[in-house]
Design a protein around this nucleic acid. Structure first.
Length: 821
DNA sequence: TTCTTGAAGCTTTTT
DNA sequence: GCTTCAAGAA
């Protein structure tokens, strides 16, 4: 895997660093340099003073407060290389935690370029992958099998739905999603189901805790863990079995954690288990860094993060972890990285101005010596389509002017749903683009079906997966038959799979169903024998798709959607093949592992279970045929950690960004502001800010006032190409004296009066919809209606519209807030 | 049993 | 507007 993005525009020293950072081949030359070639000077080359301190620091815990673009990845990789090359750390004694698998792969690659192939045996992974790896080895102590399944959000939801049904809960009052959220929070706080029951303070919590208990029991019966379990169970494992913990403490002498501001309590506890002071042994001085006599000496810990970029509180991340690091680890040192190598000063000044509105943050001031650069560009669009058109045209202009290629451009938005308009426009104008996240590959139905087959083969106890594919494709095993088998399973205390095999004992089952079940069981058993024989994942997958008839059904289908489904499955097979061909490298390579076998089905499933959105950012070729690459679209959350020469920050409207749900809550609003800070600081040279006066949210158009974050920007740094005043003026000759073009910022903060003005503006600027009798329309207040008659033309057109229970209305189309459906 | 139709809910953000 | 889930018909 190669690095995807333009390297930070580092100062001149970066050029010097380039050869060693980027050009090394992973072959012999890399190794030679790694073994003896790298000098301490080379490892410290091009680092500023605080960066250098962070790299060479030894002994006590270290907190690196790394502002956006301050070169923290560089510090991390150089430090790891330093540990190996200069401090004789064994690569296997290094545990580096990153936020995504992609970041992990990149970091491993860069360290390898510095010190050679032996770097491969480091553990560089996400929290989740690291925990899976530990659990695969140790979880039998908790009575799980090491082939446990990992349930993602969709699986968990399905399971929770079953639980709710078992408990006879009203699905309106107790939504699986809400319960799952609650359970997730408990797990992030390391509260197991027994404690949750004890802690319950009211009826609601009692019910939730009961659901939690049942949910855990079913997970266990399915030999499955959900995402949160991976962390919590590992912590519990260390707590319950001190010998296991000692084992890993002895092994990982160096622990490095990236994005520390986004760790939750469970992750924090995990780090403490590995690096915390020895329990019961009083405050000990971690003097001798190298010495690990009894294996109880804490490992060396370095965490890197930026409290201003903490954007995952909603999933349990605790900003406290980074703010109170020095209290948690009293001997800790702190290094502050404030010089930014990424952006122009204009962009940084803007970002600093916004983030400074947050209360109770530690002061930090990013600066750059890259010069002021261009002013930011602002645009107020009529609606979201206009906004997308503006973005598209602007990218064209940049291309024509030779200022940027599509690959240099990223478009950010708050929610995934906002990507659609951009896609529509880009498809129309032929702009190459790629949406990161959203409907993810691994969440597509056909992919999930295929994976359910594989998971069920690897882990027959996995009831959720088994039931998913039991009748997919249709094979005559209906609801009724399923219920009979279920009853048998309950009565005989069998797993669902066992019950299927003994379906003839099921009371009341139809012979016809029985035949179908027999056929299914037979097929599964044959496929299982392939798994038992350690067949390659891609071969098994192909067999699954053909033997089950899944592929045949899709291919026979008339539905054009099914064509893409076939393609997606082919893609999945390709992924599996690539994976099976991979030599032993990456997270599953473990020198201490007694059985370093070729990656099997289980490894493959693990890989696909833990991929993230940001792992799918397109690799854009830097050499070879240069077609300009593609524009990247993603949410602000996904954008964290990335950088682009040109950034469009879109949908800057109160209610969109900041999100509606955050408007009333100080803390959530501050998190939104941090998100804005993340977005702003992704830009290297050019930053565009846009909003739409009218935006359609699930059907109906809505008028949103300007985002408060726009008001927090220094006025003179933004060049408003189009303002709200300009926008409202063109259909209003009376006030045509309004300034157009570069006026000041669009509006100040405003109340309902201004919102109404927006509404009026909309009525005026909108073109009159051409309607015919029978058309279905949507009215802002009357809702859906159908057109009865139309009289007059253009501005004078009047339609009678039947709004059902609201009656028939006569509306002057020029003014009526009606939209044709 | 399966397919069709209709209603409801939905949108934060993700490992 | 879209997808998902439930109820009813062939």
């Amino acid at each position: 895997m190669s690095a995807l993005f333009p390297i930070p525009q580092a100062p001149s020293d970066h050029e010097a660093a380039r050869p060693s950072d980027r050009e090394a081949e992973p072959g012999a030359s890399g190794e030679r340099r790694g073994r003896r070639g790298v000098t301490p000077e080379q490892l410290l080359e091009g680092l500023n003073e605080p960066q250098r301190q962070a790299v060479v620091h030894a002994g006590t815990p270290l907190l690196v407060v790394a502002g956006a673009g301050s070169g923290k990845t560089r510090v991390l990789t150089r430090r790891i290389a330093w540990l190996i090359a200069e401090r004789d750390a064994h690569p296997g004694s290094i545990l580096a935690i990153t936020f995504t698998n992609k970041a992990a792969a990149e970091m491993r690659e860069r360290v390898e370029e510095l010190v050679g192939r032996r770097a491969r045996i480091m553990w560089v992974s996400t929290f989740h992958s690291a925990c899976v790896r530990i659990l695969r080895k140790e979880i039998d102590r908790f009575g799980y099998k090491s082939s446990f399944s990992i349930y993602d959000a969709a699986d968990s939801k399905r399971l929770m739905t079953l639980v709710a049904r078992d408990l006879d809960l009203d699905p309106k009052r107790y939504q699986p999603r809400a319960m799952l959220n609650w359970v997730s929070n408990q797990k992030n706080e390391l509260v197991d189901h027994e404690d949750a029951v004890k802690n319950a303070k009211n009826h609601l919590e009692e019910t939730y805790a009961e659901a939690y208990t049942h949910y855990q029991r079913r997970l266990r019966e399915a030999n499955a863990l959900d995402f949160d379990d991976l962390i919590m169970t590992t912590v519990h494992l260390f707590q319950a079995f001190p010998d296991v913990r000692e084992n890993y403490r002895r092994r990982f002498r160096h622990v490095l954690v990236d994005e520390y501001q986004d760790t939750n309590h469970a992750q924090y506890a995990l780090i403490r288990e590995l690096c915390g002071p020895v329990t019961g042994a009083g405050p000990d001085s971690p003097a001798g860094a190298g010495a690990a006599e009894k294996g109880v000496e804490p490992s060396e810990l370095m965490v890197v993060g930026d409290a201003d970029q903490s954007i995952y509180a909603f999933r349990g991340a605790n900003i406290r972890n980074i703010l109170q690091f020095e209290e948690d680890f009293p001997s800790a040192r702190t290094v502050l990285l404030e010089q930014n190598y990424r952006s122009t000063q204009t962009i940084l000044t803007a970002a600093n101005a916004v983030i400074s509105r947050n209360k109770g943050r530690k002061a930090k001031n990013l600066w750059s010596d890259a010069g002021d650069g261009e002013r930011m560009v602002g645009y107020v669009a009529d609606d979201e389509h206009d906004e997308a058109r503006f973005v598209s045209e602007e990218i064209d202009k940049l291309s024509d002017a030779g200022s940027a290629k599509p690959r240099d451009v990223a478009i950010f938005y708050r929610t995934n749903a906002q990507s659609r308009v951009f896609e529509e426009v880009f498809i129309r104008v032929g702009m190459p683009y790629k949406v990161v996240g959203g409907v993810r590959f691994y969440e597509r139905r056909e992919v999930r079906d295929a994976l359910a087959y594989l998971r069920m083969l690897a882990n027959p106890a996995d009831e959720i997966s088994l039931r998913r594919i039991l009748n997919t494709p249709k094979r005559g095993i209906g609801e009724r038959a399923e219920a009979c088998v279920e009853a048998l399973a309950q009565r005989e205390r069998l797993s669902f799979w066992e019950a299927l095999r003994r379906a003839e004992e099921a009371p009341g089952i139809a012979t016809r169903s029985l035949t179908c079940i027999r056929g299914f069981v037979e097929m599964v058993e044959e496929l299982q024998s392939m798994v038992a024989a350690d067949e390659r994942a891609d071969v098994i997958l192909e067999q699954v798709l053909t033997r089950s008839g899944y592929l045949a059904e899709l291919e026979a289908s008339e539905d054009p959607q099914d064509e893409t489904r076939v393609e997606n499955l082919a893609e999945l097979v390709a992924v599996a093949r690539e994976f099976a061909d991979e030599p032993q490298l990456g997270p599953s390579a473990d020198p201490a592992d007694p059985d370093p076998a070729t990656p099997g089905l289980g490894d493959f499933l693990e890989r696909v279970a833990l991929v993230a959105d940001s792992d799918q950012i397109p690799d854009q070729p830097e050499d070879g045929v240069d077609d300009g690459g593609v524009v990247t679209l993603m949410t602000l959350h996904t954008a964290k950690g990335l950088e682009f020469p040109v950034v469009f920050l879109t949908g800057l409207e109160d209610g969109i960004f900041p999100h509606q749900r955050a408007l009333g809550d100080q803390h959530e609003l501050e998190e939104e502001r941090r998100l804005a800070y993340v977005g702003l600081t992704r830009a290297q040279r050019r930053l565009y800010l846009s909003r739409a006066v009218v935006r359609s949210a699930w059907g109906a158009p809505a008028h949103n006032p300007a985002s408060r974050f726009l008001d927090e920007l220094p006025v003179d740094l933004v060049d408003w190409r189009r303002t709200e005043a300009a926008q409202t003026s063109w259909n209003r000759p009376v006030q045509s004296s309004l300034p157009s073009r570069t006026a000041g910022p669009p509006t100040r903060r405003f109340g309902s009066a201004a919102v109404r003005a927006d509404a009026d503006a909309k009525a005026r600027t909108r073109e009159v919809p051409s309607l015919a009798p029978g058309d279905r329309v949507l009215h802002d207040t009357f809702g859906m209606g159908s057109v009865v008659t139309v009289e007059g033309v253009a501005d004078k057109a009047v339609a009678s519209i039947d709004f059902g229970s609201q009656g028939v209305k006569r509306l002057l189309l020029r003014y009526a807030p009606v939209e044709k459906l």
